[in-house]
Computed example of a mutant assay.
Amino acid sequence: MAPGDYRIDFKALKARVGIDDVAYSLGYRLDRKAGVGRYIELVLGEGKDKRDTIIVSNRRDKASQTFFRRDGSKGDVVSFIRENLNSFNASGQNEWQRIAKVMAQFANMPEPDYGRERDYVRAASAPQVFDSKRYSVRPIDPDRIPCLFSQRGLSADTVKALSPFIYLVSDRRNENFNGFNIGFPYTAADSDKIRGYEIRGMGGYKSKAAGTDSSTAEWVADLSHGRNGLVRHVFFCESAFDAMAFFQMNRTRLGEDIALVSLGGTFSDRQVQGVMERFPNARAYDCFDNDLAGRVNGLRLMALVEDIPLKITKTDSGLMVEAKGKNFDVSPERSIYTQVGTHIPVRYRMGQWQPPKDFKDWNDCLLGRRTEPKIMPTKHERDDNLAERRNSGIKM
């Protein structure tokens, strides 16, 4: 067997890649106050910016590690990577090949033999089904608006305007919390049936209802009063709170022929395609975050709306795009559409309406929470770094 033909068992990757390994790479930190024993608690973000908490079991045995959240959601390292797949630079013919590549990178091992592991992939990819009976649901009371909205800078007028698209939800199976959180219902293009919720709660709590369809459904606030054909502008955001903040800050300029969309962070091709099928006469707008992940999301959105196959690669200076036989760099600091348009034909069926550069996202902008200024290295520091990398044998 030639070295280039060597493959390993897909399941062997799980024995070498822990959920904690993946979580630390994503910026999670260990909460020592919660104890360090058979279970550990990993937190993403701090204080009011706390975005997620997972409890990991079997921290010393990677093959047996599982995680759960207090909302009842749970999984293994494969499902955790799947939740955060777009945070990693991995390409593949499908989602499962991309997950396998991420695991192989963490394990420092060759890619698995996908053909021999079809049964495992089929079992791992079996989708949860959203059970609406699991959740108690209430409408938003205009006279008793949850204080979480005001904590995010959202006014009563904004909440009232969007209240037809927001609910209060409580998970009947959650033994640790019997109260209500804010739920943004997910629907698909083919029906108004609710297929899950994007959930937000006090203390930075962030989750999705168990079994939420994040492949074909998303949160959509159609302000044309159901007259989908009249929608002329669709604004894509990474979260429902960002979409609400965008609406509040720009309401006087938006009109009523609009729809607000939250894709819930990472997104599938089918989510975007479904939205554009729902609003066939609309122009899409990239309202994603002002970070590298937001720029990647913007490029993916453009590729889907403009029907241009793109391959996106992260580089030291930003992003490299491969499209229509051309390779070119894209700077995250400038309009990605202008840059792409100088290399390949673009119909401009979409636009950008991103938060000001001093802010990470629209909700931070609404709160006046500026990002810390980046301190760029001096020429001397860059030269020292280059010399160090060359001496260490890293390929440039």
Rank of each mutant, 00 (worst) to 15 (best):
R270L: 12
E333G: 00
F279R: 07
I312P: 00
M320I: 13
F288H: 03
M249S: 08
E306F: 07
E256C: 04
L299M: 12
P280L: 08
G264Y: 15
F247Q: 00
A259C: 05
T315Q: 03
S239A: 15
A284C: 10
M244K: 09
N327F: 11
M249A: 07
E256P: 01
K311L: 11
G264P: 03
S331T: 10
K314I: 15
T315A: 00
I312A: 01
V330Y: 00
L301S: 09
Y285S: 03
L263Y: 10
M244D: 08
L299T: 03
R283A: 07
F267T: 08
D291M: 10
R283S: 11
A259W: 01
V305G: 06
E306L: 13
I308H: 10
T315G: 11
A293H: 13
A303S: 15
R251E: 04
L310M: 15
S317G: 09
T313G: 02
F279A: 10
A293M: 03
D307S: 14
A259T: 00
M320P: 10
L299V: 04
T252K: 08
L292Y: 00
L301D: 04
K324T: 13
V296E: 12
E277N: 09
F241S: 14
V272K: 06
F279M: 06
D289Q: 13
L292N: 11
Y285R: 01
A243S: 15
Q271W: 09
F279W: 06
